[in-house]
């Protein structure tokens, strides 16, 4: 199509340029254009949180944004959390506490949890449940997810204190 526009932004720490048509959602751009298929499409209307990403450090639903809107912005997707050597503590915690079953909702929960813990290192159970209200899980059950978030908070606090 002739209507393509260049978008340039930072995605997971890397400067990226890509082409998009204005009507393509950020989620489509991430998955189909950039091959970042970690962000999932659940509802495509803002209700399930499977597409959660961070834009300039704020949690948003990639299905409710146009790709063209991230021009000049800093984007973090679930792919940006682990490094080559180890999982991010939030990912680690979801593994240890069995915070996933089919895993479809998990990237969204993990990104949303990171956004929470970056702002509030010691959330209460209420704060966790409230924060994650925009993320739906059809199979694991929320108790295990809440336990994963609590463990993630512990792991991140331990890491901050450094080795004994």
């Amino acid at each position: 199509m002739s209507n393509k526009r260049v978008v340039s932004s930072t995605i997971n720490g890397q400067q990226v340029e890509f082409l998009t048509e204005p009507q393509q959602s950020l989620l489509e751009c991430l998955r189909d254009t950039l091959g970042l298929t970690g962000s999932k499409e659940g509802c495509n209307d803002g209700n399930c949180g499977a597409c959660s990403v961070l834009i300039n450090n704020r949690l948003v639903n990639a299905c409710l944004m146009l790709g063209i809107e991230i021009d000049g912005k800093d984007v973090v997707t679930v792919e940006g959390l682990a490094n080559v050597h180890e999982l991010h503590p939030v990912q680690e915690a979801f593994v240890l506490e069995d915070g996933l079953q089919c895993g479809y909702c998990t990237p969204g929960f993990i990104v949303a949890t990171k956004a929470l813990l970056d702002r509030n290192a010691n959330p209460t159970e209420d704060e966790i449940r409230f924060w994650l209200a925009g993320n739906l899980c059809r199979c694991t059950g929320y108790d295990k997810i809440v336990r994963s978030v609590r463990l993630a908070s512990q792991l991140m606090n331990d890491a901050k204190e450094g080795p004994q």
Partner: peptide, 9 residues
């Protein structure tokens, strides 16, 4: 209004 992700937009 909505949840955290919605409130950011």
């Amino acid at each position: 209004i909505g949840g955290k992700a919605i409130q950011n937009r």
